[in-house]
């Protein structure tokens, strides 16, 4: 039962990150605008993140779905979600009403808010569960 649950978590998290990254790969300039709206990073870093981050998301998503390199991909998802949570909390604290840049980047893009923040917390917890399960599996072996 535990293995089935972990498989479900792995595939779910992988699919979420593939979906999130794919939309941004198609339109990196829109993603750069979304990052820039947070006003927390210099524009050079914004452009570099806009180019690389979506591919990181897609690669770790694929690795999770395929069940390969689970330690590395889970760890990256944990780090990414910590960054996302800090960025979003900071935007909310400063009262910025901006699109979160999470999935869709068009006019219908979701705004920064509590629901998006909670979503990231859930993804963070799921990634921690995955990483811990890998570590404990190895201890048992």
């Amino acid at each position: 039962m535990k293995k089935v649950l972990l498989l479900f978590v792995r595939i779910l998290l992988g699919a979420v990150f593939i979906y999130a990254g794919a939309g941004k790969i198609i339109n990196p300039s829109a993603f750069a605008d979304a990052i820039d709206n947070y006003r927390i990073a210099p524009y050079l870093l914004v452009t570099i993140m806009a180019i690389i981050l979506p591919w990181v998301e897609v690669i770790v998503g694929l690795l999770l779905v395929l069940g390969r390199w689970l330690h590395g991909s889970s760890l990256i998802i944990i780090l990414l979600n910590i960054v996302f949570i800090i960025a979003m909390s900071s935007a909310m604290f400063r009262g910025l009403d901006i699109s979160c840049g999470c999935f869709s980047l068009g006019g219908d893009a979701a705004r920064v808010g509590v629901i998006r923040l909670l979503e990231d917390v859930v993804y963070l917890l799921l990634a921690i569960v995955l990483l811990r399960s890998q570590t404990s599996d190895q201890v048992h072996q």
Binding site: W55, W69, I76
Partner: peptide
């Protein structure tokens, strides 16, 4: 693993 994933993302990106 982490470095390889990031390197691949940089290259592809």
């Amino acid at each position: 693993q982490v470095i390889s994933i990031i390197a691949a993302a940089v290259l592809l990106g």
